[in-house]
Structures are given as structure tokens and as C-alpha cells.
Computed example of a mutant assay.
Amino acid sequence: MFTGLIETIGTVLEYTTLDTSSSGGNGVSLTIGNCSEILTDVHLGDSISTNGVCLTVTEFDEGKTFFKVGIAPETLRRTNLGDLKTGDGVNLERAVTSDVRLGGHVVQGHVDTIATIVGRVPDGNAITFTFKLRDVEFISYIVHKGFIAIDGTSLTITNVDYDKAEFSIMLISYSQEKVILSRKSIGDSVNIEVDLTGKLIEKQIEVNLNNQIKNNDSVLNKLIEKLVEKKVNELLSKK
């Protein structure tokens, strides 16, 4: 679990499409450096959010100046990590510990989809970014003044257009220096993780409704029966 408060920006040192080393697992791997400040307590198997994606550390050097992670095919399909190249900056955050203040919001590091930047407008010393979702169904989990994780950064929604599957956030001056979003332009992509709360509520309602529909004696079915009976009586009374 993460907070969405980026600790540092690392640099992609190497992106390997077929890493045959023991730490590469015969798949895609990513080596990230310039991040020694978050590697002081690193261990193999630790989770580090990389542009919002929870990835497992498979290797690090003795001096703890870089670390390597593997990227699964599903992760490549869901995220924009496959577009990374040597020299790119990435947002990094270690998994939370019990003594960390939750200054952002609960972020799983499980990216739902990607979005494209369709607007970038200065507003005083802040920047308003507007994004369009690739998978439009996720717009239903995005609400005005709600949380969202963009490339792993916890941000607040300032506007939502449900018809266009677009939403906006405002990046303040302080954050512009701490996260990679300020380096991106219109047309660039970002990783999106919607707030888990909305998905949990939706699933609870769906399961509850299905259970009530299957139960003939449920409150919902009894209510439907009463409404149908009332409507039928109204129609009969008009004859």
C-alpha cells in the first residue's frame, strides 16, 4: 500500500525486453537509478511504486544506487511502462510502514488504465491538467473533489465531464518540482488508479442487490411486489 506522496524522481537506466538474468526472469525488466535516498532500507522482494505501479525489487547494487524490477505482461497492457526509455524520469514511493502519516490517500499501486493529457493551462502559479481516459468505464469512479492517483501521485479532482470521459486536476507550484507530471505535455500518457472506495461501494451494492433478487422473501422483492400490485390495482380501477 502507498500514500500517493512521491518520495523522489528516479531515472530509467535500462529497459530490457528480454532479461535472461536471474533477476530478470526471462521477461521485461526495468533498472532505475538516481534514487539512493529511498534505497537505504531496501530488501529483495520489497514493493516500490514506480509511476504508480506496485513493482517488486528483484536486484539492487551493493552501494544501493539503483534497483531492478520485473514487469508482467498484464502490467504492460494496463499501464504506460512499456513506453519508458533510458533517461526518463519516474515517480518513486516505497510501501508505507506503520509509522507513516497518510498525507495522500490509500493507493494500491494497481493501475486501472491510462489517460492522455488533452489540456494544460497555467492558473497563477499552478497548472490545470485535463485528461481523457482510454477505458471510459472508469469515469464512473471519478468524482468532483475526490481522490485519484496519476502516475502514483495523489491528486484532487477539480472537474469531471462524464460524457467525454475527461477530468481535471490542479498541480500546485510545490508539486511541480516533486513529480514528473509537470514535465509532460499535451498528448502524453499517464497511469491512472481510481479511488478504491468507489469500486468497493459499487461491488457491495451489486452483491447485495443480486442476493436480494435471488431471495423471494427479501425486502427488495417484497417492495417490488407491492409496487407491481399497486400499479395493477390502479390500472384495473381505471377500467
Rank of each mutant, 00 (worst) to 15 (best):
H105A: 07
L76M: 15
N80K: 14
V118I: 15
I114H: 08
T75I: 08
L102Y: 12
V57S: 01
I48E: 03
V111M: 03
L92Y: 08
F60D: 05
F60A: 05
F60R: 04
V53K: 03
L102D: 03
T86G: 04
R77I: 08
G109R: 04
T79N: 01
E62F: 07
R78I: 07
F67V: 06
V96N: 08
K64S: 12
D46K: 13
Q108D: 03
E74Q: 14
G104Q: 03
V107G: 06
C54L: 07
V96W: 07
I117Y: 10
C54N: 01
A115D: 01
V118E: 01
G89M: 09
D88Q: 08
N80M: 13
K85H: 13
R77M: 11
V106H: 10
C54P: 05
N91V: 10
L102E: 07
D99A: 13
T58N: 06
G89E: 09
E74P: 04
F66K: 13
V53N: 02
V107M: 06
G104A: 00
G89F: 12
V118F: 00
R78L: 15
V111P: 02
D88K: 06
A72I: 12
V53Y: 02
T97A: 08
I114F: 13
I117D: 12
H105F: 05
N80S: 14
T97L: 11
S47R: 07
L55Y: 01
S47C: 11
T113C: 05
R101Q: 13
F60I: 07
T116D: 03
F66R: 14
G70V: 11
T65Y: 10
T86Y: 10
G70F: 00
